[in-house]
């Protein structure tokens, strides 16, 4: 297990370095045009400039704020509705076509409408993130509650659990596995929602930076923005994994 981890990390590092090095090299020998693909060293310098001049922090903070609010609101709504519908099959059947329909709406189409409704500030971006996060959370919670082990439920009921105690002691922990596996996806979606919203209309945030760079054919700026975005998602994902490990510690067979 420990050795595996070393091997995995070594390979991950090697692939990353290999990809970046060949990119740099291909541009260096003029096989690729830096106008279209920029080059890693330029991107690194750009990011360093952003960081040292401090210009990146304000934008990053705005994007993170939007993504965070979208994630929390989407999760609360999705988990709540997932629970309610999983516990009342009749309501679930009534709502089913509408949920499928709403989930089928492409979010990019919604962005301009949200801009109209909620303005150019952060709330239109939060709303967009919510529409993405909500459905992932909803479907996973619904499934998780529905899939709760019948015997565990019966046993708890025989031991005297009321409906509320059943939710608290059996159904929520049981759904937690599903909810957490979807949290990773949701995290990415929340960032996508925020950035796409900014991209389509805003004056601040990473999406705004990227769209500004695109407007002036500044490919280095676009790539630098993407790298920052990706790093933030990876870092946040690692945080979620640690939280998950702690909350789901009962799953490991050795303490």
């Amino acid at each position: 297990m420990r050795r595996d981890r070393g091997i995995v990390f070594a390979w991950q590092l090697a692939i990353g370095i290999g990809a970046v090095a060949s990119w740099q090299w291909l541009v260096g020998v003029k096989l690729l045009d830096p106008f279209f693909v920029s080059r890693p060293s330029d991107i690194a310098i750009r990011i360093a400039t952003w960081v040292t001049s401090g210009v990146i922090w304000g934008h990053l903070l705005i994007t993170l704020e939007e993504a965070f609010l979208g994630l929390v609101a989407g999760a609360v709504l999705g988990i709540t509705l997932g629970f309610v519908l999983a516990r009342s099959p009749l309501v679930a059947r009534i709502c089913d076509p509408y949920i499928t329909m709403l989930n089928g709406v492409p979010r990019v189409v919604l962005a301009p409408i949200f801009l109209l409704w909620f303005g150019l500030g952060i709330w239109s971006k939060v709303a967009l993130a919510v529409t993405l996060v909500f459905f992932v959370m909803f479907f996973n919670t619904f499934q998780g509650v529905r899939d709760a082990d019948r015997v565990l439920v019966d046993n708890a009921r025989m031991l005297g659990a009321s409906e509320r105690q059943l939710v608290r002691h059996v159904l929520i922990p049981s759904a937690l596995t599903w909810i957490f596996s979807s949290l990773h996806t949701s995290l990415g979606f929340a960032m996508v929602g925020a950035v796409v919203g900014e991209y389509l209309g805003s004056s601040r945030g990473l999406g705004y930076m990227i769209s500004q760079a695109e407007g002036t054919f500044d490919t280095t700026g676009v790539f630098a923005g993407m790298v920052v975005l990706a790093s933030v998602v990876v870092a946040a994902g690692m945080g979620v994994t640690r939280l998950e490990k702690w909350l789901l510690r009962w799953k490991r067979s050795e303490a």
Binding site: V151, L152, D154, N155, A156, R157, M158, L159, G160, H169, V170, P173, L176, L248, W250, K251
Partner: peptide, 19 residues
């Protein structure tokens, strides 16, 4: 539900997330 009985199931019915 029979409130005068407990039930020991064939399958494992312990809650895995509780010690």
């Amino acid at each position: 539900l029979n409130r005068h009985a407990t039930y020991m199931f064939q399958q494992d019915a312990l809650l895995p997330w509780k010690d």
